[in-house]
Design a binder for these strands. Sequence first.
DNA 1: GAGTTTTATCGACACGCGTCGACAAGTAGT
DNA 2: ACTACTTGTCGACGCGTGTCGATAAAACTC
Lengths: 335, 335
Amino acid sequence: MATRAEVAKLAGVSASTVSYALNGDRSIKEETRKRVLKAVAQLNYRPNFAAGALAGGKSKTLALLSPSGEFGIALIALEYINGASAAARDRGYHLVIWPSQESELAEIQTFAESGMISGVILMEIKFKDERVSYLKKAKVPFAMIGRTEKPGKDSYVDRDFIGATQLGVDYLDSLGHKKIAFLTTERAVGVDTRFSSALLEAASKKKMTARKIQVVNEASSGRDAFIELHKKYPDVTAVVSLNDIATLGFISGANEYGVKIPKDLSLIALDTPKNHIEMSWPPLTTVNLPAFEMGVSASNILINQIEQKENKQNQVLLAGELVVRGTTAKARKQN
Amino acid sequence: MATRAEVAKLAGVSASTVSYALNGDRSIKEETRKRVLKAVAQLNYRPNFAAGALAGGKSKTLALLSPSGEFGIALIALEYINGASAAARDRGYHLVIWPSQESELAEIQTFAESGMISGVILMEIKFKDERVSYLKKAKVPFAMIGRTEKPGKDSYVDRDFIGATQLGVDYLDSLGHKKIAFLTTERAVGVDTRFSSALLEAASKKKMTARKIQVVNEASSGRDAFIELHKKYPDVTAVVSLNDIATLGFISGANEYGVKIPKDLSLIALDTPKNHIEMSWPPLTTVNLPAFEMGVSASNILINQIEQKENKQNQVLLAGELVVRGTTAKARKQN
DNA sequence: GAGTTTTATCGACACGCGTCGACAAGTAGT
DNA sequence: ACTACTTGTCGACGCGTGTCGATAAAACTC
C-alpha cells in the first residue's frame, strides 16, 4: 500500500502538503491539490486507518451495539446494520459490532476516551434508556435508531409514525372501511405507544371506530387476537397490525376459522421488515419500513456530529410507503 | 487511558519489558511478569489498538462480509454476527461489517495487505464461490460459515447435515411415520444439496419412502407445495422442510385446506432460525440451528489461523438438537 | 515602497506500540 | 578456567499519520 510519503514524492510536494490537500484543514493552491489528487489516484493511496487514529486521536470507527433481542428478535436489525455500515464506509468510517451487554458500556467508554471509537449507534431504544444517559454522561457521541420518550436534542432516526399510520388508515378509508381494529404490543418501546396514538388520531380524523387489541410479540398471540376479534367485534372489516410477528399468527387464525383475507377482512401491516412480507400468504399489504435508509441516516447523523457539522439536521423521521399487495380489498357489505 | 510507559514506570521496568510480559514473545522472569500484570490491572491499561496495528502490522480486526440477501434474506445472519463479534471480542479482536458487493473485494485485499484487516468471515457460501478463490489468491486469511463444494483445507463452520437430518427422521420413525415428503430448494447453495442427500439416506436407512417436493424461498411456494402434496401424495403422513420460509406458507396451505397439523400431518423444520419458530402456529418442531455458536466458531477458527495456531482444528460441524414442539404427532392410521 | 496581513508550503515532532540488537548475568560443557 | 549458550532486561527505532511553528511568497494597506 502506498504511503503518504510516496504520494508526496510523486506529486513533488512535501508530506504535510499531501495531508492538508486531502483533509482541507489549510488553504492549498488549487493546482497543487489537483496534482496531489492525481498522484493519490495513480498510486491508489488510502490513508492508513491505524496511523490516522494514532496521530489524530480519531479512529473513524463507529460502534453499533448489537441488538439483544430482549423484545423478540429484531429482524430488521440486519437491514439497519447493512445501511449503517454502507453509509459509514462511504464516509471513510468503519462500523464495528459491539455485544450489547450492559457491562460492556464501561468498556465502550474507555475505548471512546482512548479515541478508538468515535461514536456509538444504538438501536432498540426504550422510552427510558439507561444507555442513553450513560453515554451522555460519558460524553460519547451517539445516535439512536428509534428514540427515547423525550429525546431533547439527542440525535436520532426514527419512523414517522404519524405519516405511516395515516397512509394506512387513509387507504383503508378509501376502500370504504369504517370499523377497524388494530393489534399492538405494550413493550415500553417507543414504537408501540407512538403508533397507537397516531393510529387513533388518524382513525378519528376519518371518523372510523378503532378497536385496540393487545398482543405480545408472538405468533400465538396474533392467533388469539384473531379469535378475540372474531368473537367480540364481528363488524370490524379491516385490521391494522403494528406487530409483524403477531400478524403472521393472526393470518393463521383467520385461515383456521375460515375467514378469507382479504375478501372478508382486510389487513395492513405497518412497520414490517421486508423479510416478513415474503413469509405470509397472501402477501401482505404494508406500509413498509425503510430500514436500510434508517441505518444510513443513523451513520450520517452520527458522523456529522463527530465531525462537528452542527448545522446539519440531527433528528430525522422516515415515513415509508404504502405497498398494496394481497391482504386488502374493498370493505365487505355491513350486515 | 494509561499507556505502556506508565505501566512500565509503575512496575519499575522498561517499556519493552511490559510489551514482552504481555505478549509473551520473549522469556520474562515470572516475578517481573506478575509485577507488570499488577500494574496493568491497577491502571486499567489496555493496549492501544491503533498503535498496535501501526507498529506490528496486526490490526486485530476481522471483517465480516455482510449478507447480500441474494437467496432471500438470511435472518440467521444476525445471530452469526452476534456470535462472531462476541467471540472476536473475547480474543481481543474487533469485528467490522463490510458491505458485500463484489466490487468491495478488491478493497478488502488492499486493506488486508496494509494490515488493517487481519482476516475475513464469509457467509452465504455457494458451491462454487468466487469470493473464496479470490481471497485465497490474495492470501487473505478467511473462514466460512457454510462451505463450498470442495472446501479442501479451507477453514469453515457448517451444519452437520447428516446428524441434523438423522435426528429429525429418526424421531418421525419413532412416531410411526413411514411415508414422508420433504421440501427443498435448489439454489446452488450447499445447504440444499447436502440436506437432500442426507435426508434420502436417513430415510432409506429407516425404510421410509421420501418424496421430494421442490420449492423456492417464498411463502407462496410453500403453499403450492402443500397443494401438490395433498393431491399427489395423500398417503404421506409427515413432512420435513428444509426451507424455513416455505415452511410458513406450507402451514397456511394446510390451514386453508382444513388439514390439521399435527393431527393429520406432522411437520419438522430443519435448519430453522430461532426467530422463525415464534412466527408460526402451532409452534414448530425443529432441529434447530446453533447459529450463535457457528458465529463463535467462525471467529475462533479464523483467529487461530491468523495467529498461526495450525495445530487447532479449522473445520467444524455443528449438529443442533431436536426440539419437539407442536407440529409433530403419531402417524395417523393409514387408509 | 515600507509595513502588514494572508496564502501556500515545508520540516519536525508526537502518537503508543512491536521488535531488533545489545548486554549483563547466569548456566553448561569441556 | 575458558568458551558457548541461555535468560532476562533495556534502549532505540520505525510504523504512517495529524498538526504546530516557521518561512517564503504574494497580496493588501496607506
